[in-house]
Design a protein around this nucleic acid. Structure first.
Length: 115
DNA sequence: CTGATGACGTGTG
DNA sequence: ACACACGCCATCA
């Protein structure tokens, strides 16, 4: 098949990811798997991470972490501390590159948006 | 067009 | 409980 991909035509999946991430309330966080599952790609959490890597401005990617609540993508920011700093600024307790009380501030799109 | 890579998640040993 | 391997889909070289 002739890879008929339009230049810069990111799949709607990406746009959807950005939309969900943008809807994350301040002081809350979610995981790649949750977003992937919400979009139907339950097993493709990797793609979510990739979407974050290519995240356009306006997308609080710092509110998205892995299932362990660890700031795995902090290296994608200008400085490795930007992500942690932003989270702390929003009231999220972060220590050792890990979100404290992660389970408590976890924001599940499939649940919150469905409500 | 093929191959390799990547902000992850889940299952098995 | 910890360590390793596979799956998943899109982008880059």
């Amino acid at each position: 098949m002739p890879q008929i991909k339009k230049k810069g035509a990111q799949s709607d999946f990406f746009g959807d990811v950005y939309e969900v991430v943008r809807l994350i309330p301040k002081g809350r966080v979610t995981s790649y798997g949750a977003i992937a599952h919400y979009l139907g790609l339950k097993s493709s959490a990797r793609m979510v991470g990739w979407a974050m890597h290519t995240c356009p401005k306006g997308v609080p990617a710092h509110r998205v972490v892995n299932s362990a609540g660890m700031l795995s993508g902090k290296h994608a920011f200008k400085t490795p501390t930007t992500m942690e700093l932003l989270l702390k600024k929003e009231g999220v307790k972060v220590q050792n590159d890990k979100i404290q009380r992660f389970k408590d501030i976890f924001w599940d799109p499939a649940k919150e948006l469905e409500l």
